[in-house]
């Protein structure tokens, strides 16, 4: 297994704070601008990067991430170019873990073996593939683990105690708890409920549990981070990018800063999380 992920979470545990996991769409609004955004993330306070790989039919995504994927595809983004973003990023940063998040078909068409080989060479640390539940582990999860790439699974409110062991089996890196049933970008649910769910999952696993879906502000990041090992923010970042584009969906001088401003406030949130919890 690549070591960046485990190293990063171990360091954060030492520091006594949750991770800030940031999602954005590779190729949104174009290859160069998204690479620039990605390069600015660690300094703004992102601990783990989720790099979205666009798909024409994103069944689990809300309108914001759907639109980001459409912008990326329109600008010519492909899975090969998404790996190219990883490769370029790694030239300057060999510590920040990178996870590609997307759907299975582009990987299936690229060829599973070829993809895993290229991804490892590019410096990728993990995969989150929305439409591959444990029942489909033979497809990509097991080959990825064999190659040394983490396979991060989603656990949801519908994943009951009976099913959790199956979901956690063959999961590595961290567990991504989707805080509600629904698509990306919906409203944040009750943080008490999220805390209960995180504790429930932690009874079944030693892995860090990161929580996503619905976190938009530093304050929410702080609240979720009080119990979770990491807070995932996606739609809010994608919206910040969208809001910075010109009327033809091109990046502007303010695009990178729109993201880093938001990420800084989220980073402040996760840094305050455990202090607040201890009070």
């Amino acid at each position: 297994m690549t070591e960046r992920m485990d190293r990063r979470f171990a360091a954060l545990a030492e520091e006594g704070r949750p991770a800030l996991v940031t999602y954005f769409m590779g190729g949104d609004p174009d290859f160069a601008a998204s690479l620039e955004i990605m390069k600015a993330l660690p300094a703004a306070g992102s601990d783990v990067i989720e790099l979205g790989a666009p798909f024409s039919d994103p069944m689990a995504d809300g309108p914001s991430i759907q639109a980001a994927g459409q912008r990326a595809l329109k600008s010519g983004q492909t899975l090969a170019k998404t790996l190219e973003i990883v490769r370029e990023f790694r030239k300057d940063d060999n510590d920040t873990p990178i996870v590609i998040m997307g759907y299975y078909n582009p990987i299936y068409i690229y060829g599973v073996d070829r993809f895993l080989t290229d991804a490892l060479a590019a410096g990728l640390d993990g995969l989150i593939i929305v439409d591959l539940p444990p029942e489909m582990d033979d497809e990509l999860c097991l080959p990825a683990l064999e190659k040394g790439i983490n396979f991060i699974r989603l656990a949801t409110p519908t994943t009951d105690d009976r099913r959790l062991p199956a979901v956690l089996n063959n999961t590595s890196g961290f567990v991504y708890y989707v805080s509600m049933t629904g698509i990306t970008g919906s409203a944040l649910p009750d943080t008490d409920k999220v805390g209960d769910a995180v504790r429930r999952i932690k009874r079944h696993t030693q892995l860090p549990v990161c929580v996503g879906f619905g976190v938009k502000t530093g304050e929410q990041a702080r609240a979720i981070g009080a119990t979770a090992d990491g807070v995932v923010v996606g739609t809010a970042i994608v919206n910040a990018i969208a809001g910075s584009l010109d009327d033809q969906d091109r990046a502007t001088g303010g695009s990178v800063q729109a993201v880093t401003d938001l990420v800084r406030s989220l980073a402040d949130g996760v840094r305050a999380a455990r202090l607040a919890a201890a009070e």
Binding site: M59, A60, Y104, V130, D131, L132, P133, P134, E135, M136, R153, L154, A155, T156, P157, T158, T159, D160, R163, V167, V178, T181, G182
Partner: peptide, 18 residues
């Protein structure tokens, strides 16, 4: 597992699996 040869299967999000 819902397969017809290599075809079929259950490629859905975890939320829907149960």
């Amino acid at each position: 597992d819902g397969r017809f040869g290599i075809f079929g299967g259950r490629f859905v999000a975890e939320t829907l699996m149960p």
